Amino acid sequence: MTVDISQTSVDDRYVIFFDIDNTLYSASSKISQAMGERIHAYFLSLGLEEERATELHHKYYTEYGLALRGLVRHHEIDPLDFDKKCDGSLPLEEMIKPDPHLRQLLQDIDRSKARVWALTNAYKTHAHRVLRILGVDDLIEGVIFCDYGNPKFSCKPEPQFYLDAMQKAAVSDPKKIFFIDDSRNNVAAAAALGWGSCVHFCEAGLETVEGGKAKQISADGKEPLPGAIVVGRLEELRSVWSEVFKTTEDGSAKK
């Protein structure tokens, strides 16, 4: 699978796509829990009963990869209103802080070999806000986000979202893409499209919220994803993706 892009925009370097939420920061921040509460409240604001709201929240997340996709399709809500009341109301400055270790990790990627992008199911305002708070916004070349301004927006794990990401990042060869995400389904979708190195970020033992339901993070106990790697710390990328990190004088990746 290749994507046609303008020949004037072709860049032969690798592209690294980092998921943002629960990947660039730890699930221990409890942001997913706070988000789950706000999304549930949004379902209730539509006049749904408690049990029905819970049922649909989980159903839409499971079917579409994002509860908002179901809300737009079946309830004709304004996604920008949803973003304002859910993502936009999160007290992120109280939940995450600048991360010097993350910043150093991103600085140690050799930019002569790889470009660094973010790939998120959030809207651009939330994405840029998180990157700014973490203190790494200047190290991200571009952000692929869900365009809530378009009622027919796509999201992970829909194939179109990944194809659009390749187009926007001007990369035609999927084998030149490195990708890391905390969602097994999102990683599986990228692997199915032939993306070169897919990593499942899995903080085993911590708790997160998916589709409004709390769950303990694990590799799911399912069959391993073909060609995918599981890591529990971002620092492990230095060895997993050693070819795109700066090296020391002896040729080993910088620590």
Rank of each mutant, 00 (worst) to 15 (best):
residue 2 T to A: 06
residue 3 V to E: 04
residue 3 V to T: 08
residue 4 D to K: 10
residue 6 S to Q: 13
residue 8 T to K: 15
residue 9 S to C: 14
residue 11 D to A: 13
residue 12 D to A: 14
residue 13 R to V: 13
residue 14 Y to K: 09
residue 15 V to A: 10
residue 15 V to T: 10
residue 19 D to Q: 06
residue 23 T to K: 06
residue 24 L to A: 02
residue 25 Y to M: 07
residue 25 Y to V: 03
residue 27 A to L: 11
residue 29 S to D: 08
residue 31 I to M: 02
residue 31 I to Q: 02
residue 34 A to G: 14
residue 34 A to K: 13
residue 36 G to W: 00
residue 36 G to T: 09
residue 39 I to P: 06
residue 42 Y to H: 10
residue 43 F to E: 06
residue 44 L to F: 02
residue 46 L to G: 03
residue 46 L to M: 08
residue 47 G to C: 01
residue 47 G to N: 02
residue 49 E to C: 07
residue 52 R to G: 07
residue 52 R to F: 06
residue 56 L to Y: 01
residue 56 L to K: 03
residue 58 H to L: 05
residue 58 H to E: 03
residue 62 T to K: 08
residue 63 E to P: 01
residue 63 E to H: 08
residue 69 R to K: 12
residue 71 L to D: 01
residue 73 R to Q: 07
residue 73 R to K: 12
residue 73 R to A: 12
residue 74 H to M: 06
residue 81 D to P: 12
residue 83 D to F: 11
residue 84 K to F: 14
residue 84 K to T: 14
residue 86 C to I: 15
residue 86 C to A: 13
residue 87 D to T: 10
residue 87 D to V: 04
residue 88 G to I: 13
residue 88 G to H: 02
residue 89 S to E: 12
residue 97 K to W: 14
residue 98 P to N: 15
residue 99 D to M: 13
residue 99 D to G: 09
residue 100 P to D: 09
residue 102 L to F: 07
residue 106 L to R: 05
residue 107 Q to E: 14
residue 108 D to P: 08
residue 108 D to Q: 15
residue 112 S to E: 15
residue 112 S to G: 14
residue 114 A to F: 07
residue 117 W to I: 05
residue 119 L to T: 04
residue 121 N to R: 10
residue 122 A to R: 02
residue 122 A to H: 04
residue 128 H to W: 02
residue 129 R to A: 00
residue 130 V to K: 00
residue 130 V to P: 00
residue 131 L to T: 00
residue 131 L to N: 01
residue 135 G to H: 00
residue 135 G to C: 04
residue 136 V to Y: 07
residue 136 V to W: 02
residue 138 D to Y: 00
residue 138 D to W: 00
residue 141 E to S: 11
residue 141 E to D: 10
residue 143 V to R: 01
residue 144 I to D: 02
residue 144 I to P: 01
residue 145 F to E: 01
residue 149 G to D: 05
residue 152 K to V: 08
residue 152 K to E: 10
residue 153 F to S: 11
residue 154 S to K: 13
residue 158 E to V: 11
residue 160 Q to C: 07
residue 164 D to N: 14
residue 167 Q to H: 09
residue 167 Q to E: 08
residue 168 K to T: 09
residue 170 A to I: 08
residue 171 V to P: 05
residue 175 K to W: 03
residue 176 K to W: 08
residue 180 I to V: 14
residue 183 S to P: 04
residue 184 R to H: 10
residue 185 N to A: 09
residue 186 N to W: 03
residue 186 N to S: 13
residue 186 N to V: 05
residue 187 V to S: 05
residue 187 V to Q: 07
residue 188 A to E: 09
residue 188 A to F: 04
residue 190 A to D: 02
residue 191 A to N: 08
residue 194 G to W: 01
residue 194 G to T: 04
residue 198 C to W: 04
residue 202 C to Q: 07
residue 204 A to T: 11
residue 207 E to C: 06
residue 209 V to N: 09
residue 212 G to I: 04
residue 214 A to K: 11
residue 215 K to E: 05
residue 215 K to F: 04
residue 215 K to S: 06
residue 216 Q to D: 00
residue 219 A to W: 11
residue 221 G to Q: 12
residue 221 G to P: 07
residue 221 G to A: 09
residue 225 L to D: 04
residue 227 G to F: 01
residue 227 G to Y: 01
residue 227 G to D: 01
residue 230 V to R: 09
residue 232 G to T: 11
residue 235 E to V: 11
residue 235 E to L: 12
residue 239 S to C: 13
residue 242 S to E: 15
residue 245 F to Y: 14
residue 249 E to W: 11
residue 251 G to H: 04
residue 252 S to Q: 15
residue 253 A to L: 15
